[in-house]
């Protein structure tokens, strides 16, 4: 049946996209879970990562170096944003709203900085790897997408390993659960916030590089992945990494299936509607369902 092939093809594509969506969304979720900050500059960090990857790839002609540079660049940018900006408003009563406005301002600055220095045109990453096309039965898979997917999986595994097995990860968990008690146990919350922001931004930067060969890079490229990640994080439960993981995969699959029949706009409407319903019924998202 032609239809089932189409569906299978879309599911494969959705899965591959889902891998990248996970690392964008999980970074967003992580910052909220640990610091209570909804980071509206997450998409801009993604965009900066993409540009760093682009410049690195132009210099070295290596996608792996580009991905590493994007990750490191994202980490540094994240630490700068936390230490230089978000930290200054952390003690305010209206931290939630103030942080939204502040990170929006940072997003505007980053976006327009790239616009003034690079122009608004679309640039593509000049990499010539993974051009082989694999035929799995009737399904076509471009090998580049699989490599990118594997890199994304490695990053997620790395993140979970850091959080579960390292001392820093233990600190992150402790601050997320109870900042005051963590402080009493000798953990410096400020350091944890900076590292968490750095890790989150590193993931966004990496995602920017990973998505660059599939799409292209321009100053406002980050908004669409940000909105998708935003939906994922809301549905998965803000701050819940496992919830985010599951929600990202489900939404990536739903999105690629839905775009087969509906327009992108309609798909977004359905997803946003679903998000509102989830928030209405359970502001914690679906994480209880997932983790139970």
């Amino acid at each position: 049946m032609v239809d089932s092939v189409l569906v299978a093809q879309q599911l494969i594509n959705g899965m591959l996209f889902g891998g990248i969506l996970v690392i964008i969304a999980i970074g967003l979720s992580l910052i909220f879970g640990v610091g209570g900050v909804l980071n509206f500059s997450h998409g801009a960090i993604f965009m900066i990562g993409g540009y760093i990857g682009l410049f690195t790839a132009q210099l070295t002609d290596s996608f792996l170096f580009a991905a590493i540079a994007g990750t490191i660049g994202g980490f540094i940018l994240g630490v700068v944003i936390e230490v230089g900006f978000v930290r200054r408003i952390r003690s305010r009563d209206d931290i939630g709203i103030a942080a939204i406005m502040l990170t929006l301002g940072i997003a505007i600055v980053l976006e327009n900085f790239m616009r003034t220095t690079q122009g608004s045109f679309h640039q593509s990453l000049p990499v010539s790897f993974g051009t082989a096309v694999w035929n799995v039965g009737p399904i076509i898979v471009v090998s580049r997408r699989v490599y990118i997917f594997l890199l994304a999986i490695a990053a997620i595994a790395g993140l979970f390993a850091i959080i579960k097995y390292t001392k820093v990860g233990l600190g992150i968990q402790a601050v997320a659960q109870d900042r005051q008690t963590a402080l009493l146990m000798g953990i410096r919350p400020n350091r944890i916030y900076a590292i968490t922001f750095g890790i989150s931004a590193a993931l966004a930067g990496l995602a920017g590089v990973l998505l660059a060969p599939l799409f292209s890079i321009y100053p406002s490229v980050g908004w669409r992945p940000f909105l998708l990640a935003f939906i994922v994080v809301m549905i998965g439960g803000l701050g819940s990494l496992r919830g985010t993981l599951v929600a990202a995969v489900v939404i990536a699959l739903v999105r690629s299936l839905a775009t087969t029949w509906f327009s992108t706009q309609t798909t977004f409407i359905i997803l946003f509607l679903f998000m509102i319903v989830v928030l209405y019924l359970n502001p914690q998202g679906l994480k209880e369902v997932v983790e139970a």
Partner: peptide
């Protein structure tokens, strides 16, 4: 307003942002 009345602070921002995007995209479709 229905979800807004049930939520507070930044959750109001999130749910209204989602609603705004629905209206925006509906205007396009």
């Amino acid at each position: 307003i229905v979800p807004v009345l049930r939520l507070a602070d930044d959750y109001v921002a999130m749910v209204t942002l989602a609603y705004a995007e629905i209206l925006h995209r509906a205007a396009i479709i």
